[in-house]
């Protein structure tokens, strides 16, 4: 579904990604792990077109999409949900969702998709006419994921969906990510919550210094010494479970 080859990119003149290679199979969940500031979000931004690809290629569904305008990438079915739970705070939950379906042509599909999102996250239904600014952190994350689903994407990229949320909500969100995949989507998820992410995902990549350092089946990664050392925290220092 998504093939990233030798991706080089960055901000201004600062190069962050130094030739990253990744592959996401159709209808799988792939986890992208790595320490802070290693370039996880940067990979997603290059895929969704909000920063330029300097070198290398990003192939989605058999088509090269690097450096296409972001709205074309959304139309092709690849959607990014950003890290900061970014919503339109001065708009209602419903308006936020409608914006998620901006590329849809038919009003019927829009309404169907809103129903679909409410099925995943019933809480949003209860809050639909509330301003997004008044939502709790968990609800905001649900809104962001829901908004990402609105455009009928083939693949969704989630940037740290569990950040700063209570364990109960994290569990709920991860269950829903699994459900989303069961319903036919492909998911790329960036996570700090390494143990949870590897439990959820089929395959994992670990990025370090802008290149993929380790990769493998999630079950293998969980017992990989280097991953264990750096993330699953032998001493428990960087563990985040």
């Amino acid at each position: 579904m998504l093939k990233i080859k030798n991706l080089v990119s960055g901000y201004g003149s600062v190069q962050i990604l130094n030739g990253a290679n990744m592959k996401v199979e159709n209808q799988s969940i792939v986890a992208l792990l790595g320490g802070n500031g290693t370039g996880k979000s940067t990979i997603l931004k290059a895929c969704s077109g909000i920063i330029r690809t300097w070198k290398g290629s990003i192939n989605f569904n058999g088509e090269d999409i690097q450096n296409l305008p972001p709205h074309n990438i959304v139309e092709k079915g690849l959607v990014q949900v950003t890290q900061g739970k970014d919503v339109f705070p001065a708009m209602t939950v419903l308006e936020n969702l409608k914006l998620g379906g901006f590329t849809l042509k038919s009003k019927q599909t829009l309404n169907d998709n809103i129903e679909k999102v409410f099925n995943y996250f019933p809480r949003l239904n209860e809050r639909k006419s509330q301003l997004a600014a008044t939502l709790s952190g968990g609800e905001l994350q649900m809104l962001c994921i829901g908004r990402g689903l609105m455009s009928n994407p083939k693949m969704i990229m989630l940037d740290e969906p569990s950040a700063a949320l209570a364990p109960q909500i994290v569990l709920d969100i991860f269950k829903n990510i699994n459900k989303i995949r069961k319903d036919g989507l492909t998911v790329l998820v960036v996570e700090q919550n390494v143990r949870m992410a590897l439990l959820l995902a089929d395959y994992g990549y670990v990025i370090k210094d802008g290149v993929i350092n380790v990769e493998g089946e999630s079950k293998k990664l969980m017992y990989d010494e280097s991953v264990k050392d750096s993330y699953l925290g032998g001493g428990g220092t960087t563990a985040n479970v």
Partner: peptide
């Protein structure tokens, strides 16, 4: 209104 608030999120929803 979306673009007025944030170009980045507007881009990501396909505007």
């Amino acid at each position: 209104r979306a673009v007025a608030h944030s170009k980045v999120i507007s881009n990501l929803v396909g505007i």
